[in-house]
Amino acid sequence: MDEIFDIFLLEAIINGILFGGVLALLSLGLNLIFGVVDVVWICYAELVMFGMYTVYWLAGVYDINIFIAALGAIALVSVLGWLVHVLIISPILGTAPINQLLATGGLLFFLQSVATLMFSIEFRNLGLRLPILEFSEMYFSYARLLAFGVALVGMVVVYLFLTRTYIGAAIRAISQDREIMVLMGVNAKKIYWVTASIGGGLAGLAACLLVLQYDVHPFVGISFGPITFIICVLGGLGNMIGGFIAAFILSIIISIGGLYSEIEWGYVFAFAFFIVMMFIRPQGLLGKK
């Protein structure tokens, strides 16, 4: 009896880690934008939703090769991210930060509704049946493994970009001293554009991975949005490594919580853990005072 129980627990932990990969990817995008532009995009998960629809239409309806569909979704959401910055954030950059938060909140409503208008509230899926892998009496979905692997690769690419290129160095520097960037010959506006596009692109990549596992509908963002914000805050807003660790902690809590009860309780435990952690480390896991 004990042995079987342990296997379930192990399976839940591994599934949690696999799920954490995509969450880490999402929180990386959000953290990147926050670190550079100092704005939280409340509508981030809604961009993911549009990416999911893009893959669904291209691959599911028009029968385009899934990899090309995925690239299309990444490109489209990347442009969406750039538009969010140029059309909504940029005009109010100088005003109270809360206005920027709210403007993207308004965009959240807008994107949900536009999706309802365009695609109706029907749940749609690709209809792909990816195999389930069995490994010593534990079962893992192939889609999740794939998502985890691709998410990791995506994060490594971003890491290399940030550490090996001039633009990447500027992205890391800008949050430390915004004013001085001009002396380096950095056009802050351009850095914002690049960051918003990368943030969008990461949302697009996450969308490709999520659409393999979940149905898409106009309100699917609500399932990923709040948990992503919480991961970012728990890791320390703008702290990419902190977000990475927090993503896995929370996804494991959700997965284990879901093992003993319904999955909602998993989320409740994760949120409760987050609130408790805020009192222990209000600056985030790795944040500095």
């Binding site: 308004g106 965009l107 409503f109 807008f110 509704s113 536009v114 309802t116 208008l117």
Partner: peptide, 22 residues
């Protein structure tokens, strides 16, 4: 059937409100 159009306009107006009438 234009379900969603109402809230689309609503969301758009909220954004415009915040940008132009903070």
């Amino acid at each position: 059937d234009l379900a969603g159009l109402d809230t689309s306009i609503y969301g758009l107006m909220l954004i415009l409100f915040i940008i132009f009438l903070p």
